[in-house]
Amino acid sequence: MIRDITIGQYYQTDSVIHRLDPRVKLVATLVFIVSLFLVNNILGYVIAALFLFSMIKLSHVPFKFIVKGMKAIVFLLMITVVFNLFLTPGEAVFSIWKLSISREGIILAAKMAVRLTFLILGSSIMTLTTTPNNLTDGMEKGLKPLRLFKVPVHEVAMMMSIALRFIPILLEETDKIMKAQMARGADFESGGLIQKAKSLVPLLVPLFISAFRRANDLAMAMEARCYRGGDGRTKMKPLCYKKRDYIAYLTLALYMVCCIVLGRMISLGQIASLIGITI
């Protein structure tokens, strides 16, 4: 059910990836996402896939656990695929009624599906291997220069960290309220769109009330523990780069070069002749 959503949930284990500096992981995620939109041939996707799956392997997070988190976005993925399939103009290969699927549509849909899946998998590796506190520490330190432009870096980082901590709690709560209302005969499944939207009121009102109560409690608890913003705070786990972080940066640079050279510069035809198949 709703509890199965694992995006953003830290998975506790010990691995090289877990031990990397969060800044490295943030940069890596960014680089990986950029690379996904840079590459434009099959070899490029193969390189991205290789990179991604070696990271998953290195992270020691069970693949099943990661895939379980993907369930939540299957719907989003389907929509993207369907839209791309039908709405890309080009040479029609298949048509029913007024809709037709074009060759370009198929390619584009496949590309988008792969990109989206990789994107989510890639970013979930980051959140699965980095505690939110660590992640926000990384963001805070990495984005520190932005403070010169009056960007409240610490506050944003703290907000994100709190949001992440409360996601599982609120999900569980949603599940509970849903069941409680179902026990009173509520029906969240049948009916048209408007009916469905209306049936969410008994779920959303209690959920919001609870979220506000929690926010209020938490703010009080934080103040009681002397929280007063980022100034003058020290760190229990201050960030400093180690050897492995430099190695990671190097690997990342190498990956980017591969992506650009092999995944973009070499044309499809060149690869085709290389491998010996024509597309």
Binding site: K176, I177, K179, A180, Q181, M182, A183, R184, G185, V201, P202, V205, P206, I209, S210
Partner: peptide, 16 residues
């Protein structure tokens, strides 16, 4: 569910 009524823990959290 109407015949087997279940009152959850902290049921006041479901009032809306």
């Amino acid at each position: 569910r109407s015949k087997v009524g279940l009152v959850f823990q902290y049921p006041e959290h479901q009032l809306f």
